[in-house]
Every structure is written in structure tokens, then in C-alpha cells.
Amino acid sequence: MTQKKLHPSVEKFKEFVRNNPKIIKEVRKGNATWQELYEDWYLLGEEDQRWEKIGSDGEAAEVKDEKEAKGDLMSNVMGIFKKMDPNQMQSHLQNISQAIGAIQGLVSQFQGGNAPNNPVKPPEGPKHPFSFRQD
């Protein structure tokens, strides 16, 4: 197998990424692309503050985002409950109940009416399914 020789700057960038695994996580999360990171690395250099932010603020931001998301979820749920109209909710629940009843009726029809109220009847048919005639 022959491998293409990469440009020396690309080789240096790959080495930089190997030394900073948090950069890989940024790409996998979808926060950046390899092209963007390469261009920033090429223009700004390895000593830029951006690379320090990716390493240190990433974990703290994740924990903070997770706490905010939980808080936001609770406040959203509470806000929804405050905005609800009880009469409208009753109407929706009644509609859902009717829909479930209709579905149960259809299912029981397709099952042949074998509901608990209808006892199971053996299939009716001739006692001798094959009629043989003597010659």
C-alpha cells in the first residue's frame, strides 16, 4: 500500500491534535470542523488562547449547560402547567378517551368479537368435512 505524503503543515497539525485530544471531542460534538480548526491553527498558531479555552472551558461549560438544562426543563414544565386551561385539558382528555375507545372497538372486531362478554364458540361446520361417496 502506498500512502500519499501529506504537506508538512498538515503533519504538524495532526501531531498538535494528538497532543490535544479535546480538539477531537469538539469535532465529534459538531462544535467545529477539521477545516475550521486547521485554518485557525495555521493562522493563529499553537500558542493561541483558543486552544486553552477548548481544553479548560469545555468541561466546565458542559457541567454548567447540564445544570441549566435541568433548570430550564423544570421552569418550562411549570410554565406549561401555569398556562393550561382546565376546561381545554378536560376536552383534550375526553377526545383521547373516545379515540382509545374507538381503537379498542376496531381491535375487538378484527379479533372476531372474542371479547370477555362474548363466550368463545366452536366453529360450526359439517361433522364430516370430507364427503366420500361409494361407487
Rank of each mutant, 00 (worst) to 15 (best):
K53T: 05
K121T: 08
N118Y: 09
A60D: 08
L6Q: 13
K14R: 15
N31R: 12
E47N: 15
Q109R: 08
L73G: 05
G71F: 00
I96A: 12
E15P: 00
I96E: 07
K67M: 05
L44C: 10
I96D: 09
L37R: 05
E39W: 00
P123E: 13
N19S: 10
E59R: 13
D48G: 02
M1L: 07
Q90T: 06
G112F: 01
P21C: 00
V10R: 13
P126A: 09
F16L: 05
P122Q: 11
K4M: 11
M89T: 15
R50P: 01
L37G: 03
E62I: 01
L43Q: 12
F110V: 07
R133P: 00
P119S: 04
P116L: 04
Q134R: 15
T33K: 04
P122N: 10
K12P: 00
Y42T: 06
P8L: 06
G112M: 02
P123Y: 07
N114I: 04
L93D: 03
G71Y: 01
D72V: 01
S56T: 14
Q109F: 03
H92G: 00
L6G: 04
I23T: 08
K67F: 02
D72A: 14
S108D: 09
Q111K: 13
W34I: 02
P116G: 03
D135Q: 12
P116C: 02
K5Y: 01
S9P: 00
S91Y: 06
P123A: 14
F16H: 08
G79M: 02
D48T: 01
G30Y: 01
Q98H: 02
Q88R: 15
K67I: 06
N118S: 14
V63A: 15
M78R: 10
D65F: 06
K83A: 15
R18K: 11
F130I: 15
E47W: 02
I80G: 01
V77M: 11
L43F: 09
N19D: 14
K4W: 06
D65R: 12
G112P: 07
Q35N: 10
G125C: 02
D57W: 10
W51H: 04
K29W: 10
N31Q: 05
